[in-house]
Design a protein around this nucleic acid. Structure first.
Lengths: 111, 111
DNA sequence: CAGAATCCTGTGTGATACTG
DNA sequence: CAGTATCACACAGGATTCTG
């Protein structure tokens, strides 16, 4: 499934651009400001460099983030949100507001 | 990956509850009002009954939708959003607003 | 009509190891 | 530091068939 529903539905487009569990979380980190590869990897506990690279590349292609490499020693690369990517702030805030408003978050075996 | 990031991050919780490409689209249909199984299947072009059932079940468990079966002939079942599920409207609207605001939506081979 | 059962696939992701 | 390369896996999803 690559098109979900073809209609000009904005929700579909969003889902296509921010696919996978990590995508949105990476944006969430970047919303706090530009980040280096290692900073992202450390902030996103459990993500593998493979996945991080993959998602970052996709974001670049879609104009959501920019990659800036500095020719220094040691090398430094910074990822930052584009204006388009910044626009995701409201979406993430809506997600968070909703999730945090749920009465029964996660029914753990609290005993 | 089952916990994404464990922190009380609302975004993570949202992603856990609305995982998979279809989940959000089902909610989108339900936001227009209660729907029957077949109505959902028809509206969501390409979805398989297997997937639809699976997602609907998960939503039930998470208190996002309610399932109401009417003992009629032929059988009728209606799915509706709970108040919690209704709260997703703002999130979906934010997604749509963002996606629709992107200058270069999908670079097709228009030529 | 509204699924259930069974089998299979795509792909986002993980683990580990290696490099400019 | 910032990746790349490879192999492997879990799981959302698809296809098909069948039933209360």
């Amino acid at each position: 499934m690559n098109k979900l529903c073809d209609h000009k539905c904005g929700v579909s487009r969003f889902l296509t651009l921010l696919n996978g569990p990590w995508a949105t979380l990476i944006v969430r980190e970047l919303l706090a400001g530009p980040r280096r590869f290692t900073e992202l990897r450390d902030a996103l506990t459990g993500i593998s460099p493979h996945t991080l690279t993959s998602r970052l590349r996709q974001f670049e292609e879609n104009g959501i983030v920019t990659r800036t490499a500095y020719a220094e020693i040691p090398p430094r690369v910074e990822y930052a949100l584009t204006p388009v990517g910044e626009g995701l702030r409201e979406v993430l805030e809506a997600m968070s507001a909703w999730a945090l408003s749920i009465p029964d978050p996660v029914p753990d075996a609290v005993s």
